[in-house]
Every structure is written in structure tokens, then in C-alpha cells.
């Protein structure tokens, strides 16, 4: 039986990914959004010159790249799955699946697999466009890429689980985007994606520190920005240990809430 659950789960990754790319909303507001924002920031500040500590200046586009990668992780996990599953709950998809021998484990393997396939493609596209179109220099040392890899995997896993957890909140499929998008949008503004984090007031930085996006963005900055930039972080260091702790904590929260709240349908209704 367990091999069946894995086989069907794997088959669902392909099915879910196909569905994702056939949905224009998902492609535009989740997949391409960070790329579009990076393009806008790069173009808007192209004449602003370089920023950063003396001796380590970089272009504005290069400064924003880690933030956009972090935003992509949040969108691909939280926004994508919260809206997707809430919609499936209200349009009858989950009810239909609940009447088949599909295991919920296979269903979630499909969803999380889809998040990883689309999230990885999104990051690859962002990095490719950064290097070729926007002329941003990417790291050349292995350590930076390893940092990127674990922040990406941990961040995306936590985001996917939080997306599943958040899908319980909207009362209908129609209200799903209205409930989910403001949450992820506010997080992007206070967590250093669109606004330079070290310029934000301390109280806002403290609030952002309660949520996972701030830590993803910090981890991505650690991977992509010159070490001299560490001095402008909250405690003057990248604090990668705390990045891991915060993301793991949110991963556990997402796992528990998903486990407790998910039902194919409400049977007591």
C-alpha cells in the first residue's frame, strides 16, 4: 500500500504541475511576479548608481535579487497552496477526491512536489535572468551556493506547509485570494523584499522577525550579498543559525496546523 501511496503521489506531482502552468493566475501572480518585480526595480533604479558599504558597492538590482528569491519561495509555497487548496475545497475537487481511494498523503506529496518543481524553476529563471538580462554578478564560491540551497529547501518546505495550513482560513474559493494575498503582500513589505530592511524602523523589523519571510530574505542576502553587508543586519551579522531555527519552527507550526485542520470535507456538517 505504501508503495502505491508514493507512486500515486509522484504521479500527482506531474498532474499538479501541469495544472499550475495552465492557470494564468498562478503563472502571473506566483511564478513570474518576483521576476517582474526584479525587472521593475532594476529598471527604475538603473541610474541610481551603486549602493552598499565602501569597497563592496553593488547595483540596486543585485541588492534586491535575494529579496525576490525569498519572495518567490513565499509565493510558491504560501500563496500558491493556500489559494489553490481553498479553491479546491470550495469548488468540489476535494469532495470528489475524498470519495476515491486517493490517500491524503499522496495528495500532499503532489502539492509539495509541485511547490518544489515550480519553486525551483522560478528560482532558476530569476537567477538566469539576473545573470544574463540584468547583468547581476552571481556568487562564485561553493559556500554561498550551499547557503542558498539550504535556505531555499527549508524555506520552501516551511512555506508549503504554511500554505496548506492557511488554506483552512478562507471561507470560500472566491475569498481565498482576498484573504491570502494581503497577508503575503504585507509580509513582503515589512520583511525586506521591496523595502531595504535596514532602513525600516526597529519596531517594524521586530514584527517582521516573528514571521518566516524576514528570515528567508536574510538567509538569501547571506548567500548573495558581499560579506560587508552583514554589518547592516539587525545584529550586525547574518545569523544563519537563527535563520535555520526560525524556519524550522515555522515548518513545525505549518505541519501541526495542516495536520489538525485538513479534511477532504467537513463530515459533521
Amino acid at each position: 500500500m505504501s508503495t502505491g501511496i508514493m507512486t500515486i503521489g509522484t504521479a500527482r506531482v506531474g498532474y499538479e504541475t501541469k495544472g499550475y502552468f495552465r492557470s494564468l493566475d498562478a503563472v502571473f501572480f506566483t511564478f513570474l511576479f518576483p521576476l517582474i518585480m526584479l525587472g521593475i526595480f532594476t529598471a527604475a533604479f538603473s541610474s541610481a548608481g551603486e549602493i552598499g558599504p565602501p569597497g563592496a558597492e553593488i547595483s540596486v538590482g543585485a541588492y534586491y535579487l535575494p529579496g525576490m528569491l525569498a519572495a518567490g519561495v513565499l509565493l510558491s509555497g504560501v500563496q500558491n497552496l493556500a489559494v489553490d487548496i481553498a479553491t479546491e475545497k470550495s469548488d468540489g475537487t476535494l469532495k470528489r477526491l475524498g470519495g476515491t481511494p486517493l490517500s491524503p498523503v499522496s495528495y500532499f506529496l503532489g502539492k509539495i512536489g509541485q511547490v518544489f518543481v515550480t519553486g525551483a524553476l522560478q528560482a532558476a529563471l530569476l537567477l538566469l535572468a539576473a545573470a544574463t538580462v540584468f547583468g547581476i554578478a552571481l556568487p562564485t564560491d561553493l559556500e554561498s551556493w550551499l547557503t542558498f540551497a539550504w535556505v531555499f529547501v527549508l524555506g520552501l518546505t516551511a512555506s508549503a506547509l504554511l500554505g496548506i495550513a492557511l488554506s483552512a482560513l478562507p471561507r470560500s474559493g472566491k475569498s481565498a485570494t482576498a484573504v491570502v494575498i494581503p497577508i503575503v503582500l504585507v509580509l513582503q513589505f515589512i520583511s525586506g523584499v521591496y523595502l531595504q530592511f535596514d532602513r525600516l524602523p526597529e519596531w517594524m523589523q521586530n514584527i517582521a522577525s516573528l514571521f518566516p519571510l524576514k528570515w528567508m530574505a536574510q538567509g538569501m542576502r547571506a548567500a548573495f550579498l558581499p560579506d560587508e553587508f552583514a554589518a547592516s543586519e539587525m545584529n550586525g551579522a547574518w545569523e544563519l543559525g537563527w535563520v535555520a531555527v526560525a524556519l524550522l519552527a515555522w515548518l513545525v507550526v505549518g505541519l501541526i496546523v495542516s495536520r489538525v485542520t485538513f479534511r477532504w470535507i467537513r463530515r459533521d456538517a
Binding site: 498532474y15 501541469k18 492557470s23 468540489g92 475537487t93 469532495k95 470528489r96 470519495g99
Partner: peptide, 18 residues
């Protein structure tokens, strides 16, 4: 048990991307 039954519910509003 679910593998032995088939269910045709009243019409639903699935997005139908497939």
C-alpha cells in the same frame, strides 16, 4: 472500501484545466 464504490455527486464547479 472507497476503491469498491463509485460516486457521481451533483454537478460541481471545478476549474477543469485538464
Amino acid at each position: 472500501w472507497k476503491a469498491r464504490i463509485g460516486i457521481v455527486l451533483q454537478s460541481s464547479g471545478e476549474s477543469g484545466q485538464f
